[in-house]
Design a protein around this nucleic acid. Structure first.
Lengths: 347, 347
DNA sequence: CTTTCTCAAGAAATCGGTTTCAAGCATATT
DNA sequence: AATATGCTTGAAACCGATTTCTTGAGAAAG
């Protein structure tokens, strides 16, 4: 019953009394095979639970049916969700994903890029390596381009001068819906905490934040823009300490992501400041983190499904040699939960 | 500068004026090559940034250097962390991981198992598919065994009757340190919330929980053992509703995992019951979720590093045909944060 | 009844590596 | 000087599929 030996199409062919080529034809459906032989072969395939060796097939077709994915840290629910959505789409088309975590280390990212090329993956999706880094050096762009020359590379960042396909979140639009919501609640003292200067998405958000304040006739106060060291809850906590040092606290806080918001909330709770009664807080990414705080977090949601869909379709299109748009933007919407409130009139 | 064509060892060989065999020898280091030729070949490899085709190599060596990993849902930080740790170890040995999410769907798990076999992965790590399911049917065990006959399969569950290598968390010991801690704080009314009847790890925890209560001369109260529908925060929230229905609330709550604990905490906060002053709460897994609650959660930590290490080493050992222990247990330790307090004497 | 067309199916080349086998050359041994 | 020993190296087989090319049988056409 149990099959020990690794069967090949030669074994199947022999037992069916046909040539390996005929077995291959049945397997791929690439050409007609007489009904009798086809049935005989299919029966054997089923009986022995035969699966063609993907390495051999890949070598022959110069195609691995694997898509490589590089993320910063899969423990971060943002990346995990993007990955999951990509997997859903990819597997629908017969592709499997190979994942690597850079953990923010540039050397690892280089190594994994090489490894994926070596594995002859059919496409590489780079989410959150250095693809959104404003100071990423030319060497990296060169490296990526050398690979993008041979294998389609899809990135979710900017990476000036690269030959990659881009699927980006429209940070401007995302910030817009946040600001409009907060301002509609009557807030004027609005802080923007977290995020780093050299990250494109953060820079984009800050820039729109300032623009929108101006549009609504609100003064931009630089002390309300607090940079965070990382994108975790500790950073959020630290950012809040800087705000506490000011003589007057903002009435609303926009956090660069859910983690930062969580850290900020903890800092507030510790001081006995309650959310949303005293301070409103809103964030980006809408990961499940936003569900587990109390109150639950109002957060901007990118349609992850759509994100994964666009990314993988770009990859598949490029693999097939079709014309694929070089840049695609993902729109967001606000998921309103319990962390924001109308500003009290007492100011 | 940029290399468009896919180079092969034949190209390198030709340009170096040697045979492909010699290039291969340099590549694998499998045999001595004269210094002059070796240097010439290496120079060319570097110049053209040549990387041997892993598919061809894999076909020839009947070895893909890929390890397949099946998880339930990578968004769950428990799986994400296990995956990350496995990746760290695997990549140290030249392996890459291919990940698939079953999302709790048995059919997907079967499909992915097949796919991995087809890809000729060198080993399969199954974390949290049906491997810990007590009612998993015989078909599944058969399926796994058919594959385990050819490719080493490492599971983190029990799966009676399977030929897999097992690396398990010692649930008994984990529960022990939790109970000892809680009891040392003076608690006697201790609830155990969340988890499902058909999951081995949950059953193990419950069984030890009862044993330990008895050992400490505390009555087992069945209404304090609350089953959860899933392993998420909603389930934790729901479990708490059942406890609220009792006439007397327990003074300590053990949650089956961090998510469940978070849901429970939200339920408590809503009722104005404060943690840890009124109720202590402790959980399992020590994911980063435990860091983002206020107060931060006291949680049992499996050494994920050790876990990944043991899993991957089992895989590598089995691949090499070495003798590998069929079962290995992972010990836990308690990470004490702010969610538990000494029982007030007023009871 | 012969010629042409169609189509199933086998032989063999190919994908790009690794490895066995044997040859060839230089050095060591007696 | 003759034989034994040790290395480097190339030729060729092999891993397991796909695919092109070719053959041959049977059907259609004349």
């Amino acid at each position: 019953m149990a099959v020990k030996k690794n069967l090949t199409i030669y074994d199947i062919a022999q037992e069916a009394g046909v040539s390996p080529a005929t077995v291959s034809r049945v397997l791929t459906g690439s050409a007609r095979v007489s009904k009798a032989k086809k049935e005989r072969i299919e029966a054997l395939i089923k009986r022995y639970d035969f699966k063609p060796n993907a390495l051999a097939r890949g070598l022959s077709e110069t195609k691995s049916n694997i898509i490589g994915m590089i993320v910063a840290d899969i423990r971060n629910p943002f990346y995990a969700t993007v990955f999951l959505e990509c997997e859903k789409v990819a597997s629908r088309y017969g592709y499997t994903l190979m994942v690597c975590n850079t953990l923010g280390e540039p050397e690892l990212e280089d190594i994994y890029l090489e490894k994926m090329y070596e594995q002859r993956v059919d496409a590489i999706i780079n989410v959150g390596g250095r693809v959104d880094d404003l100071v990423s050096n030319i060497d990296f762009v060169d490296h990526v381009n050398r690979i993008a020359n041979v294998i389609p590379v899809i990135i979710t960042g900017k990476l000036d001068g690269s030959d990659c396909y881009r699927v980006n979140i429209d940070q401007m639009q995302a910030m817009e819906i946040v600001m409009e919501y907060i301002i509609s609640l009557g807030h004027k003292d609005i802080a923007l905490i977290g995020g780093r200067d050299n990250v494109q998405s953060t820079v984009d958000k800050r820039s729109r934040y300032k623009q929108l304040l101006k549009r609504y006739g609100i003064n931009v106060r630089n002390e309300f823009i607090v940079e965070g060291k990382r994108y975790d809850d500790e950073s959020g906590y630290e950012c809040m300490q800087k705000l506490f040092a000011l003589e007057k606290l903002p009435t609303a806080i926009i956090a660069i992501n859910d983690f930062t918001a969580v850290g900020a909330m903890r800092a507030l709770t510790e001081r006995g400041i309650s959310v949303p009664e005293d301070v409103s807080i809103v964030s980006f990414d809408n990961t499940f983190i936003a569900e587990v705080t109390s109150p639950k977090l109002t957060s901007v949601s990118y349609s992850y499904e759509n994100f994964g869909e666009k990314i993988v379709h770009a990859a598949l299109g490029a693999i097939r040699g079709e014309e694929v748009p070089r840049i695609q933007l993902i729109q967001s919407e606000l998921v309103i939960r319990g962390s924001c409130a109308k500003l009290n009139i007492e100011e």
